[in-house]
Amino acid sequence: MEENKYMNPYLAGFLLGLVLLATIYITGRGLGASGAVKSTTIAIVNSIAPEHTHSDKFYQEYLTEHEDNSLKNWLVFEVVGVIIGAFISGLISNRLSFKIEHGPKITNRLRIATAIIGGFLFSFGAQFGRGCTSGAALSGMAVLSTGGIITMFAIFGGAYAFAYFFRKLWL
C-alpha cells in the first residue's frame, strides 16, 4: 500500500501550537524531549553503577530532585506518549516499516555512524541549552523566554553554518 501524504504544514503547525498551548495552560510547563533522554540515561547508569551515581555530584543533584527515581518524570511519560502517538499515526498513514533512510551518496553503515554522532552531539548540546528543539526552542518561543529564543537561533543558525560541509551526506 502506498504511504499517505503528510499533513498541510500550516495545519500541522497550528495543531502542534494548540497542543503546546494546552500543555502550558494545564501544567504550566512546555513540551520536551531531551529531558526524557536525560532521565533514561541517568536511570540506566543508576541501575548499572549505583555506587557511582551516589557519589557523583551531577547524578546526586538530579536524583535528589526526582526522589531517587529518575523515570518518574513528566517528560518520560510524555515521551512514552510520543512513541504511542507516532506509532498510531504511522499505522494510520501506512508508514510503519523498518528501514534506514540516507542520502543517495552514502552507505547504510555511514548513515548509522552519522546518526549516532548526530544524536550524541545534539543531546550533548541540549544539556548546555537546557532543552532541545522542543523544550528550549519551541516552548521557549511560546513563553517568549530570552534563553529559549537564543537557543533556537543558535540551533538553526548553527545548522545552516555547518550544512555546507555535510552536504554530501544528504544531497
Binding site: T114, G118, G119, L121, G125, G129, G158
Partner: peptide, 12 residues
Amino acid sequence: GGIIMGLGFVIG
C-alpha cells in the same frame, strides 16, 4: 549548546 545542537542536526 545551540550551535552544538545545530551541528548534531545536520550530521544526524
